[in-house]
Write a protein that binds this DNA or RNA. Sequence first.
RNA 1: GCGGGCAUAGUUUAGUGGUAAAACCCCAGCCUUCCAAGCUGGUGUCCUCGGUUCGAUCCCGAGUGCCCGCACCA
Length: 501
Amino acid sequence: MKSENNLLEEIVSLSKRKGFVFQSSEIYGGLNGFFDYGPLGVELRKNIKDAWWEDMVRRRDDVIGLDSSIIMNPKIWKASGHIDGFTDPMVDCKESKMRYRADQLFAAEVLVDGESLGWVSLLESENMQSVAQEQAENKKRKESKQGELQDLILKPYDELTDNEQLLVPSPATGKVGSLTPPREFNMMFETHVGALRDGSSKCYLRPETAQGIFANFKNIVDTGRVKVPFGIAQIGKAFRNEITPRNFIFRSREFEQMEIEYFIPPGESEWQRHHQEWINVRKSWFSSIGLTKDCLGEEVHPQNKLAHYARACTDITYKFPFGEHELEGIAARGNFDLTQHQEHSGKSLEYFDENLKEKYLPHVIEPSLGVDRTFLAVLCSAFSVDEIDGEKRTVLRFHPRVAPIKAGIFPLVKNKPELVEVAKKLYERLQRKWNVVYDQSGAIGRRYRRIDESGVPFGITVDFESLEGDGSFTVRDRDSTEQVRMSEEELLLHMDERINP
RNA sequence: GCGGGCAUAGUUUAGUGGUAAAACCCCAGCCUUCCAAGCUGGUGUCCUCGGUUCGAUCCCGAGUGCCCGCACCA
């Protein structure tokens, strides 16, 4: 475990040293849960987003794009359930320092012949009714009461009155009076639109991009020449006031999502088929951009843990240095969202299906992932330390498609103007196609190591043979460190094949 | 939110109640014909604010951030 944490620390410090990720507002002492992406980070992010957009939108006939605003009419969040449901009332036990979600903590009053013996409390579970019954009987026995125990009515803690809450014992200690009242955490950031800061101007920073898609469903259907099944894709920032941001950029308060809402006809077999298809598509996409296959996994949400409207949800997970966690959630959401927006907006969102000759609210499969989590997984997969001739080498083995810098171009030595001139010319040509760097400082080996740490897949050196002979260059492979001679045309083809597979 | 630990150069880390060090990295120059060679020079609000003190990077308090554990993650 310790060495695994060190691995994350090494990645964090490399990220800073090479300009991938900085802590936000660092010169002011930082701000918990926010990050800035430096010169290399912004390129890597862009490449990840571009790869997703290319593969999920441009190369598919059934998915189109959208870019909706971050701040939207707050009624959207009422309809989606985020204003009411995106809160977790929490209860703390002051004595045991345990914390519970108020809606998962249940309590019931123990009544014997109408007389109250106090309350019992327990955490939500499948057999909580019988556990509570047992507790109540113990209580009755302890107080040696005769008479009939009345049926227990279990209620979640947040639905009790203030006075009732005071009587509930802590499930940890069994003592009354150590639980705090439920405290609300709404994870949505609030802001105000317009000059006046009264209630009517209150708006939210979106906690997910998905609702912007649902809100535009009618626009897309009316203008996009689409037929179910089809998807709407969006990449954009989202904001959640997380209680505890942790693990570097894995859980932050400002993050970027890549989401698709894939609309399908109603019907049990339809969603089952599409859900499985998307799981397969998404999982193979992750390995196509260079995530270590052995680190990828799936986690199927158990039926009793699903949101009430969801049919199924499968996470694609990644084994990070700090544990296996969700990269992407692929949810079958039924037609919950469109139903809600139709109801709250008063506008019909029904779709007329020409094949089935019927009107319906389409159901939806939602593959939703975080750019930043993918970024971190790409970084973790790429990071490695190996040894060359007894020397340690840190190398980021990015897939060429996502590598922030595609090639380094070097004159073998810098005090020979002929070499410098040819190298600069080649640099300018490659620059028009890709993000490449020119470097002439230090010995050639140092320059190779320098680009290894930035994850540059190709090192191209202009030497004397390039001037005199056939004009070929030395092309050095980052992973194997092997060198091959290539002409300029061969080089362009070689790079293009690997960068755009 | 709770408990514990930590905060010194870009990075990793020494160190001290009396003007702060090393290694590596980075930048410039010289040199260099293929995997971190060498030489010269350069780069510092000791996290912030307050207190104690003649004097605080060091001691004390508060804050902020990071790490670990618990809890949480519609």
